[in-house]
């Protein structure tokens, strides 16, 4: 039973750790499916995390925190859009710039406002998104296996965890069952086809980056207002880039994105759990190795196992009407 408990705990933390990846990965999906590459997921997440924690602390409300996080992240997304859609700038450069601005400004503003070395004040219980207990979780707790699965694994997460996983079918539906989704997918493949059909390529791509911004904001909110109780310098720690890797891994599809994020979440959870513990046959493995594993795995799997990941054809290319 101990072993079973350990597995349950491992899976439980897998879910928690994959949530920010999932939000960010879906964010990237909207943007990249529309043909706007976004390397600035990390920066938008970080800015969102800071704004969320700061607003939640000042106004004593997790919801206001979420609103602030989403707003600031959308603002950054619009900056990216302005540079790369309106002015046809290089999307990679613009994304990198956003990452730098976010990394620097969060710490400076944090120090200026709260004087806690770049942190935001610790959030109290009522200022965070807390664990929700699903109905019947307590009653079922003692039922072997099924009860534990329900009460430990499915129940007891914050609202944002459920929201993240709910976004997967919503995104799928939006992408494949709505007019917006059809046009979004088309503009990432052949903007010329969209333009000649009488649809504004610019406005469509702006809407896509706004979706991207909103989801990055939610990713940031989760980090600082749900998972943790406040903002810490560089708290995204490369999650935006792992989300990008997961997106490629998922071949830009929503359900695959969820699976990829769960896999990376699992590796992360396993790395934490196995810290300092000797592995059978191998012995002690340095923590750094375990932390590098998601990246190593991406390279290996992309190189050989999942087949060619074909990005949206017009990705990264600003749309210019043919002369």
């Amino acid at each position: 039973m101990d072993f079973f408990n350990a597995i349950i705990l491992l899976l439980d933390s897998t879910i928690r750790l994959s949530v920010p990846l999932l939000f960010a990965c879906l964010a990237g999906l909207y943007s990249e499916r529309a043909g706007v590459f976004d390397i600035g997921l990390e920066g938008k997440m970080l800015a969102g995390a800071f704004a969320g924690a700061a607003a939640a602390a000042v106004y004593d409300s997790a919801w206001i925190g979420m609103l602030a996080a989403v707003s600031i992240s959308i603002f950054f997304a619009l900056v990216h859009g302005f540079a790369s859609i309106t002015h046809r700038g290089n999307q990679i450069v613009s994304g990198v710039a956003i990452n730098f601005v976010a990394a620097g400004s969060t710490v400076i503003l944090g120090q200026a406002w709260f004087r806690q070395g770049g942190r935001t004040p610790s959030l109290g219980t009522e200022e965070r998104f807390n664990a929700l207990n699903l109905p019947g979780a307590e009653a079922l707790r003692d039922v072997p296996i099924i009860g534990q699965l329900y009460s430990e694994l499915l129940s007891g997460h914050s609202l944002m965890v459920y929201l993240a996983f709910l976004m997967v079918p919503i995104t799928w539906w939006a992408l494949y069952r709505t007019r917006f989704g059809l046009r979004l997918r088309a503009v990432g493949e052949n903007p010329g086809a969209v333009d000649t059909a009488g649809i504004s390529v610019t406005w469509l791509r702006y809407r896509a980056v706004i979706c991207c911004g909103a989801l990055c904001g939610l990713a940031g909110t989760y980090l600082s207002v749900a998972q943790n109780a406040g903002f810490v310098k560089d708290m995204t720690a490369g999650k935006g880039f792992i989300a990008l890797a997961a997106l490629i891994f998922a071949k830009w599809r929503p359900v695959n994105a969820m699976l990829a994020c769960l896999l990376f979440g699992f590796l992360d959870a396993a790395a934490i759990r196995l810290q300092g513990q000797p592995l059978p046959f191998i012995g002690k493995v340095p923590v750094q190795f375990m932390q590098a594993l998601p990246y190593v795995l991406t390279v290996i799997l992309l190189a050989g196992f999942i087949g060619k990941a074909i990005p949206p054809k017009a990705g990264g290319v600003p749309y210019v009407k043919e002369r």
Binding site: L182, A186, N190, A193, V194, D195, K313
Partner: peptide, 20 residues
């Protein structure tokens, strides 16, 4: 001006979908 990985039908309705 076609989206190559779309079906014929999807290409034809693009921009004239009728509803959301």
């Amino acid at each position: 001006m076609l989206v190559e990985n779309f079906s014929v039908l999807e290409n034809i309705i693009l921009g004239a979908e009728g509803a959301a």
